[in-house]
């Protein structure tokens, strides 16, 4: 598209294209996107088998549930028609993709210094005035600092850090806690989570946070210009907004 733009007589004001995302981030992003969508869809299918959530070590029909979930409709579940065995097959295969993918990305992000360089949050960024300024920029749909357009804004950093270092690891840890085999191998996982039914509840809450993140992420990608943003996550090349 850019090649078709008529040459500018002054030679200035050309759209500036920079390298935005490294290859480690791009590969992991798409592998993880597929894994998260499949895990959410198959997870909702599994939830339909027993849509009650409990706190503590045990919990079944005669025990008090803190939440009774709705029956998730066929357009949200994998497979569309209720089939616990097949939902579990999808979930347990892509759980491995998510877990080992995250592990590889964690190593890659540290080795390439992507985390240290791009996700580090400094104390002064968390001052109320700084937070307020970032919020005002968001409400005006300005997502990039014109002086340093490549940098993530504060809310971006906070949400990426929350997802990468809290929500995804917690989803994996609570998932491991649901396995009776892993309970024998690593009993401490159950201990720190307060029992299997608590782990199951936290697993669902964490998945809800990841689903919410995914929706907000998609909305912001659209607002920031879907074509440019999606291309930058495929080729790495990103056009700096005017």
């Amino acid at each position: 598209m850019e090649s078709q733009t008529p040459p500018d007589p002054q030679g200035a004001d050309r759209p500036r294209v920079i390298r935005r995302h490294g290859v480690v981030t791009r590969v992991w992003h798409w592998v993880n996107a597929v894994a998260v969508l499949i895990l959410l869809g198959s997870g909702l299918g599994i939830s339909n088998a027993h849509p009650r959530l409990y706190w503590g070590r045990y919990g079944a029909n005669f025990d008090p549930a803190w939440a009774t979930l709705p029956r998730f409709p066929r357009w949200l579940t994998i497979p569309a028609n209720y089939n616990l065995a097949i939902s579990r097959r999808w979930h347990l295969l892509f759980a491995l993709v998510l877990g080992f993918g995250l592990l590889a990305y964690m190593i890659g992000g540290l080795v390439t210094r992507h985390f240290q360089r791009d996700l580090r949050i400094r104390g002064r960024e968390l001052r109320p005035t700084a937070l307020w300024a970032d919020l005002k920029q968001h409400l005006a749909f300005r997502f990039h600092d014109p002086r340093d357009p490549r940098a993530y804004n504060l809310f971006q950093k906070l949400s990426y850090v929350l997802v990468l270092f809290v929500a995804l690891p917690l989803a994996i840890l609570t998932g491991i806690a649901l396995s009776p085999g892993m309970n024998a191998a690593w009993p401490w996982v159950l201990e720190i989570l307060g029992g299997r039914q608590s782990a199951r509840s936290i697993h669902f809450i964490t998945a809800s946070v990841l689903a919410l993140f995914t929706i907000v992420h998609l909305v912001l990608v659209i607002l920031a210009g879907a074509g440019n943003e999606v291309r930058s996550m495929i080729t790495g090349r990103w056009r700096v907004p005017e």
Binding site: H50, R52, R57, Y58, A60, R88, L178, P180, R196, R200
Partner: peptide, 12 residues
């Protein structure tokens, strides 16, 4: 011990 049903509930 804890009995875990494939559906998600547990009983001890």
């Amino acid at each position: 011990t804890r009995h875990d049903c494939v559906e998600g509930w547990s009983a001890i």
